[in-house]
Design a protein around this nucleic acid. Structure first.
Lengths: 117, 117
DNA sequence: GTTCGTACTGACAAAGTTGTCAGTGGAGGA
DNA sequence: TCCTCCACTGACAACTTTGTCAGTACGAAC
């Protein structure tokens, strides 16, 4: 069940976009850029997102090497997601994207609720 | 008939991605970053893309203010698309995306055919 | 006078993404 | 005992995006 639509593309732009693309991936990465979070913490911090989609996106980000999944073998289970070393190379790119997007919103839409809020 | 899926989102990352997202938008922008092109020139330069999709993406990019459409009132019609002044602010962002993507492909996939080719 | 090229539109099918719902197993609380 | 929490899976419906096909108007080439 892939979440990102693109099959492997040889275009670097597509390749990059396929990593962050997905309805909630950007948001998830912003949340995690403040430090590791448990699955349920992430879910509660993005109430519009369903648990199903969260988990699907998390799995893809882990597959792409952007996130690390760490599980404490306890009951109830405790799984913590964090941005991997490789994932951190993506963060400055997201910042550039965000800067442009913020400016773009000033032309068209309302202020941001996710990043500056 | 929207091509980009996202309704207006207050998140700047989503806002930026909604502009470049779409199966062929990145490629179209790369082509046009070398100078204006006619519709048919663009179509021929990206043979995997159908004319229908090209036109839909072009219209969205014009709507978003990224491209400018200039029509010479001649027969047969001659329409030329170019990157707008505002659109040029997007190009450095695409370059950052491209750089990361190229590196990402080195971890996983083959070399690029669209940008470096 | 039939076909080609140009830049498009509309209707619709196919494919891809997201959302909904139910269910897993075991600890802990009422 | 029943219910909740935790992190997840599977089946499938709903929606979005992409692709296919036909058709428009006009002139020019053959």
């Amino acid at each position: 069940m892939p979440v990102s639509k693109k099959e492997a593309s040889p275009c670097p732009i597509d390749a990059m976009l396929s990593v962050v693309d997905g309805r909630w991936k950007g948001t998830i990465l912003w949340r995690l850029s403040n430090g590791p979070l448990r699955t349920s913490e992430l879910r509660r911090s993005i109430p519009e997102m369903t648990e199903r989609m969260l988990i699907r996106h998390l799995q893809e980000l882990v597959r792409d090497g952007i996130l690390v999944r760490r599980q404490e073998s306890s009951v109830p289970p405790c799984v913590r997601y964090s941005i991997s070393k490789y994932g951190w190379t993506l963060v400055p790119v997201l910042e550039v994207i965000c800067t442009w997007g913020r400016n773009h919103l000033r032309r068209t839409g309302p202020a941001c609720r996710i990043v500056s809020g």
